[in-house]
Amino acid sequence: KYLVLALYDYQEKSPREVTMKKGDILTLLNSTNKDWWKVEVNGRQGFVPAAYVKYL
């Protein structure tokens, strides 16, 4: 498993997404889509914009 760092705040806009705050450390679950990565944060799984996170 990889960890990624939230570069920006992101507010979920659909039930498939998750909210994150700048500085959050997220567990990367799937990065096959170049635009949306599946992550786990605070016990929830969902998608965030790939451009908003970077590998640690």
Rank of each mutant, 00 (worst) to 15 (best):
T19P: 07
Y10S: 01
E40V: 08
V4S: 03
L29N: 02
Y10G: 01
K54D: 13
T19L: 03
Y52F: 14
L28Q: 01
L29G: 01
G23L: 02
V39W: 00
L3E: 08
M20V: 11
L29W: 05
A6P: 01
V48F: 01
L5T: 10
F47V: 07
L56I: 14
P15L: 09
Q45D: 07
V53P: 00
K22R: 12
V18T: 06
A6V: 09
Q11S: 12
N33R: 09
K1R: 14
K13A: 13
E40A: 10
I25W: 05
A50I: 04
Q11N: 14
N33D: 15
G46V: 04
V53S: 00
P15V: 11
W36L: 04
E17S: 07
K34Y: 08
Y10A: 01
A50K: 07
R44S: 07
G23F: 04
E17Q: 11
E12D: 05
K21W: 08
V4D: 00
Y2G: 13
Y8W: 11
R44W: 04
V39S: 00
E40T: 06
D35F: 14
S31M: 11
P49Q: 02
G46W: 02
G23Q: 02
L26R: 00
V53G: 01
L56K: 06
A50W: 01
I25R: 06
L5V: 15
D9F: 03
T19Y: 04
E40S: 10
L56H: 09
L29I: 15
V48W: 01
L5D: 02
V18C: 08
V18M: 10
Y8K: 13
V41Q: 10
K38C: 13
K38G: 06
Q45C: 10
G46D: 00
Y8Q: 14
R16A: 13
L28A: 03
T19Q: 05
A6K: 02
P49H: 02
K21L: 08
K21G: 06
F47M: 09
Y52R: 07
W37P: 02
P49E: 01
M20T: 03
S31K: 12
R44A: 07
E12S: 15
D24G: 03
D24N: 06
L7E: 05
K38S: 08
G46C: 02
D35H: 15
N42E: 11
T32M: 12
V18H: 03
D9Q: 03
W37Y: 10
K38Q: 14
L56N: 05
V39L: 03
L28E: 00
L26I: 08
N30M: 08
K38D: 04
K38T: 07
S14N: 12
E40I: 07
K13R: 14
G46S: 01
V4Q: 01
A6D: 00
N42Y: 08
D24P: 00
G23K: 02
T27E: 11
G23D: 08
K22T: 08
P49A: 02
E17I: 04
G43K: 06
G46Y: 02
L26V: 08
R16Y: 15
F47N: 04
L29V: 12
L26K: 00
A6Q: 01
D9M: 03
M20K: 00
V48Y: 01
T32H: 12
A50P: 05
K34M: 09
L3A: 07
K34G: 09
V53K: 00
N30Q: 11
T19I: 03
G46N: 01
Y10K: 00
S31L: 07
